[in-house]
């Protein structure tokens, strides 16, 4: 198998390092760079595909074909768009707070790459099995709030600021239920390590069946966290132009777009890991199972986006604070009692 081959290759390279007395940290850095290169390729390929998929699904939901001209089934459409956006002028408004304006897309994008350190792709295929797995992901996910606020505040545009404030209010309202829903899984598995959580599901059943309420809370909150309809108020085109990214253009704007899809993918793969047993499954290779489960959630999110209308801002806050939060707290306590009994 490929995984064994890579492991043996790593060991022979390590032996070479030891034999020549070369410092081992160089090897550690080199492997880390290889890992992040792999993750970047994985994210970019998936985002190219996801954007195409989203346009196809939205097309068919609305009874039209979606992109068809570029390549077979329009598959190359996103690539053409990426090239186009790279060639567009990069406008920074005169009144903008330049540094903050430039840094905001970076603060948004970098965490969406960093969460892939702990996501397990397959048996033993994981950049680093950190012992604080879920906590690490939750901490990185909260970086979205400052990035949007930075973008909105620095643009010197009323729409941007309004959109940024709304999205900050939305994100913090849904972050608490999200974290509490993940806690239910932690209580069952007794560990924050994602590999332990998968192992715990292999011993019993998928946590989807032990944590149905937690799963629903997680899924709704994750939809809200990734700013997707019915929770896409920050970008509500019809009232706020484009929200926090009104003043962004060209490639700088596309970084936000890239981040949105990278986050969707990350959210889906984390959901697959926490609730559907990650890469474990019969017959098919583990990696195939991981992709199937991830894309199940991706499809669900897209389906919901193109079927449901956007909700109002007061309904949004009510749903987060007065429904999801109490439900998540009760779910946590019930799970605790269940585990101790």
């Amino acid at each position: 198998m490929l995984v064994d081959w890579v492991a043996s290759l790593y060991q022979s390279v390590q032996a070479t390092f030891v034999a020549h007395g070369w410092p081992l940290w160089v090897l550690a850095v080199l492997t880390a760079v290889l890992k992040v290169a792999g993750v970047l390729v994985w994210i970019l390929l998936n985002v190219l595909f996801l954007i195409w998929l989203e346009r196809k699904i939205s097309g068919h939901v609305q009874n039209r074909p979606g992109p068809v001209y570029t390549g077979r089934f329009g598959l190359l459409q996103t690539l053409a768009d990426a090239l186009k956006v790279l060639l567009k002028e990069d406008v920074i408004p005169a009144g903008a707070d330049r540094w903050v304006f430039v840094l905001a897309p970076l603060v948004a994008f970098v965490p969406s790459v960093m969460i892939w350190v702990v996501i397990p792709f397959s048996r033993g295929v994981q950049a680093q099995d950190l012992n604080i797995g879920i906590l690490y992901v939750a901490a990185l996910a909260s970086f979205t709030v400052p990035s949007l606020l930075m973008a909105g505040w620095s643009s010197d545009n009323k729409w941007s600021l309004m959109g940024a404030l709304r999205s900050a209010a939305q994100l913090i309202s849904y972050e608490v239920p999200l974290i509490l829903a993940e806690l239910g899984v932690v209580v069952l598995a007794g560990s924050l390590r994602l590999s332990d959580i998968i192992a715990a599901q292999q011993r019993s059943v998928w946590f989807l069946f032990l944590q149905p309420v937690g799963f629903v809370v997680y899924f709704i909150a994750a939809l809200a966290e990734s700013n997707r309809t019915p929770f896409d108020l920050p970008e509500a085109e019809s009232e706020l132009v484009a929200g926090f990214n009104t003043e962004y253009s060209g490639f700088r704007w596309s970084i936000f777009f890239l981040t949105e899809y990278a986050n969707l993918l990350g959210m889906a793969s984390l959901a697959a890991t926490l609730f559907l047993g990650g890469w474990s499954g019969p017959f098919l290779p583990p990696f195939v199972w991981f992709v199937i489960k991830t894309y199940f959630f991706v499809f669900l999110a897209m389906w919901i986006r193109w079927t449901l209308p956007r909700i109002r801002v007061d309904q949004l806050m009510d749903l987060g604070w007065k429904f999801l939060l109490p439900v998540a707290l009760v779910n946590l306590v019930v799970t605790g009692v269940f585990v101790v009994l």
Partner: peptide, 17 residues
């Protein structure tokens, strides 16, 4: 040492952008 990966991911992502 496990956090070598975390820091590398951070730096390479910044570099990529």
């Amino acid at each position: 040492a496990a956090y070598t990966d975390v820091v590398t991911f951070l730096l390479v992502a910044v570099l990529f952008i």
